[in-house]
Design a protein around this nucleic acid. Sequence first.
DNA 1: ATCATTTCCTTAACATGTTAAGTATCGTGG
DNA 2: CCACGATACTTAACATGTTAAGGAAATGAT
Lengths: 145, 145
Amino acid sequence: MSSTLPSTSRSLPIALIRAREGVMAPIREMLTETGITEQQWRVLRVLSEHGLLDTTTLAERSSLLFPSLTRIAASMRDKGLITQTRDEIDRRRQLIEITAAGQKIIDDRTSQSTQIVDDIKTKLGTDNYETLLDLLGLLDISSND
Amino acid sequence: MSSTLPSTSRSLPIALIRAREGVMAPIREMLTETGITEQQWRVLRVLSEHGLLDTTTLAERSSLLFPSLTRIAASMRDKGLITQTRDEIDRRRQLIEITAAGQKIIDDRTSQSTQIVDDIKTKLGTDNYETLLDLLGLLDISSND
DNA sequence: ATCATTTCCTTAACATGTTAAGTATCGTGG
DNA sequence: CCACGATACTTAACATGTTAAGGAAATGAT
């Protein structure tokens, strides 16, 4: 007779939103100075880590939906942060690569970004931090079990 | 000299996004049948739990930004899910209340919603589930420590 | 080769996230 | 009572989330 929903104060979706907000607040603050958005930062991070990528792979690795990435990539191209080229073998594919200007943003902010993450680890404790990442991984659809 | 960012595959913000996506997917599926969005569902949940609320409190409890709630409330009013009245004491305040039609949505979906949450608990194990909520709470700014 | 299907991406439309500016009301010191 | 700042919301503007439809290139069966 489970006729009552759990209190919203103990709701997992809401807890995830609030935790994300807590984590992103200092990062967003940093990015405001840089003039890029959180999503653009994610794209730069992935491109910096993996090099040349097609749009599908990039969308997956940066956890962006395809239509969002289309717009974001166009904006980043206009800003000179990435280049878009067509795959000559499979002309449906688009290949995206980070530019020197894009890489410079990463380089300039790496130290600051690392500090923010360290602060969070300290706040939670390293063990808890790792536990949290593991538990979140269990909820991830794309890494199915 | 921490000159390298953590791999994006072990990034907390991205893990939070993906976990949220995993949790919300079945809920969103349920809500599609109902014809309301995830945020509207949250508003209904909070109103059902707490009764009459002013906009500020409602925004906070449903984890929505004020401008978003303004739009969402207007849309929900037009759908007949809530009522908006002005506070006669403090005429700046707006009081929002769930309607019978809104409550019916909650009632109709409570069982299904509970089942979804139970599935997640089972997937993680109850202990892990509680641990996860606790850890997420530590990241929440609004519940500062 | 040709047509249907699939794959990769773009566009469109609407809702929300986010920041900033604007409006109306309240409370307070002078 | 009045000017002032604070509070509670609204609007605006732009970026993203989300779903659906569309377009172009590859693939496979005939």
